[in-house]
């Protein structure tokens, strides 16, 4: 364990020296994580992750399955709270505010940090109600017209409105997989979050639907901070500006996407990118 921790530290210093501030585009930091550890019961799933996530850009987490990338993602909006026996240590800051501060309201936090899941999970309600759910529970819409506007604009931004405008009252579960996932993105955006977390959003979709979602992510980047977990390196290369590589519960390497894929520093990252592990 000690050896492992030392390795991580060493890796990080190399990453920092590698990320020359003049080379990287100037972006304000939205989320800062320091030494985040996650335990499930007695087992430690994440061994101290430190990373900074830039505003209005797409950051992707890659790594073989079971590497802790999803676990870390779920720490950012405290979704791990809902798992019995899960315990998070370390510090995560959103705009300089500790999100694990006991005085912080997790409800408010999640309104600011939206999430899209691996499998499209529309509620068994109509398309309209799916999108309206968030605004309704948070009391964002003051009137019916207000709500209509939020629903329509969210669907529009998710690029789904044209496809479903005639059947807003039909169940969301009746849509195709790709449409369902875009519905979930619209649902997340309807609350007006600043950050959107995506947990392998395309893993259950076919290539065409995947392409549409990737295009959407690229558009959304202008207004949101996006963090995406993906098992596909190509996807990470296509959509993200920053990439972090996780392995066995450790953050091995992070940096500008292009650098990670063309010029990885760490041996494990190299192996993964070359397809030798994972």
């Amino acid at each position: 364990m000690d050896v492992m921790a030392g390795k991580v530290k060493m890796t990080q210093t190399t990453v920092e020296s590698a990320m020359n501030p003049t080379d990287a585009p100037d972006r304000s930091i939205r989320i800062q994580a320091q030494d985040v550890k996650v335990h499930y019961g007695a087992k430690e799933a994440l061994h101290g992750v430190s990373i900074e996530i830039p505003d209005r850009a797409v950051t992707s987490f890659i790594g073989p399955s079971g590497c802790g990338k999803s676990t870390f993602l779920r720490c950012i909006n405290r979704m791990n709270d809902t798992i019995e026996g899960a315990r998070v240590e370390g510090l995560i800051k959103l705009d300089g505010e500790d999100i694990y501060d006991p005085s912080l309201d997790v409800v408010e936090l999640r309104a600011r940090i939206g999430m899209v899941f691996q499998k499209p999970n529309p509620f068994p309600k109509s398309i309209y109600e799916n999108v309206a759910y968030g605004p309704k529970i948070h009391g964002i819409a003051t009137s019916r017209t207000d709500l209509d506007e939020i629903v329509v604009s969210s669907l529009r931004r998710a690029g789904l409105f044209e496809e479903v405008k005639d059947r807003l009252n039909e169940p969301g579960t009746g849509l195709s997989g790709g449409q369902q996932q875009r519905l979930c993105i619209a649902r997340a955006m309807a609350v007006g979050p600043e950050v959107i977390l995506m947990d392998e959003p395309c893993s259950a979709l076919d290539p065409i639907a995947t392409a549409i979602i990737e295009e959407l992510i690229d558009e959304l980047r202008a207004n949101y901070t996006i963090v995406i977990v993906t098992h596909s390196m190509q996807q990470a290369a296509r959509v993200s500006q920053k990439t972090a590589f996780f392995h066995l519960g450790n953050l091995i390497e992070e940096g500008v996407t292009e650098d990670i894929f063309t010029n990885p520093i760490n041996k494990q990252t190299q192996d993964y990118i070359m397809g030798r592990i994972g």
Binding site: D105, V107, E108, A111, R112, H138, G139, I140, V191, G192
Partner: peptide
């Protein structure tokens, strides 16, 4: 604005 509304309902 939205954040304010969310806070109000908490």
């Amino acid at each position: 604005e939205r954040a304010r509304k969310v806070k109000a309902g908490l």
